[in-house]
């Protein structure tokens, strides 16, 4: 009858990076809360290499999928996209019906919320804009579109990045974008 508890422990080890580190540092102690026989915890503890590899492959798969959904943000961030996205994904288990879109929206919100200086403000704004264009999989469009203000010309920036145009240093310019209102998921 331990399968439900074992699946709960494994699922957490697969998706939660900080729990994974704590568990493998001391499986016997940290694994106690999983309420499984000590021998089973020890057996899982001995599979550290395999479980870590599986967890990394899940992150890799999610990363590949969000790259395709936030292409302009990825180009704007260049080499920094991978590490930032990885850090975000490690801390946020997948969710929702359309998991790649959910990941991409979450990452774009997280990038937009980074304090100024972490990433250039125009990239924060671009990430917020690009993420907002991904429509809720299970929601559908709401009735009323809404007007959203950006501090940079995000529409042009996205277009230029996707075409591969040289950007220079983008200057702030208040930009209004009409966005479809996303209905909350049922």
């Amino acid at each position: 009858m331990g399968l439900a508890r074992e699946q709960a422990l494994l699922a957490r080890l697969f998706v939660d990076g900080s729990y994974r580190d704590r568990f493998f540092a001391d499986p016997a102690t940290v694994g106690q809360e999983a309420n499984l026989p000590a021998a089973r915890i020890a057996a899982i503890g001995r599979c550290e290499v395999e479980i870590r590899a599986f967890a990394h492959s899940l992150i890799h798969k999610r990363l590949v999928e969000i790259r395709g959904l936030l292409p302009a943000t990825e180009r704007a961030l260049g080499d920094r996209f991978g590490p930032l996205a990885r850090t975000y994904l490690e801390q946020h288990p997948p969710g929702g019906l359309d998991k790649p879109a959910e990941d991409a929206r979450g990452l774009s919100r997280a990038l937009a919320a980074l304090p100024d200086g972490e990433v250039p403000p125009w990239i924060s704004e671009l990430a917020r804009y690009e993420g907002s264009r991904l429509i809720e999989a299970a929601g559908g469009l709401g009735v009323l579109p809404r007007l959203v203000v950006y501090r940079f010309p995000v529409v042009n920036l996205q277009r230029s990045l996707l075409r591969g145009d040289p950007l220079g240093t983008p200057r702030p310019r208040l930009t209004l974008v009409l966005e479809p209102a996303h209905r909350r998921r049922a």
Binding site: Q7, A11, R62, P93
Partner: peptide, 11 residues
């Protein structure tokens, strides 16, 4: 999925 955690992949 297990115990409220979605793995996002087939385990």
């Amino acid at each position: 999925r297990a115990d409220g955690v979605a793995i996002g992949h087939l385990a």
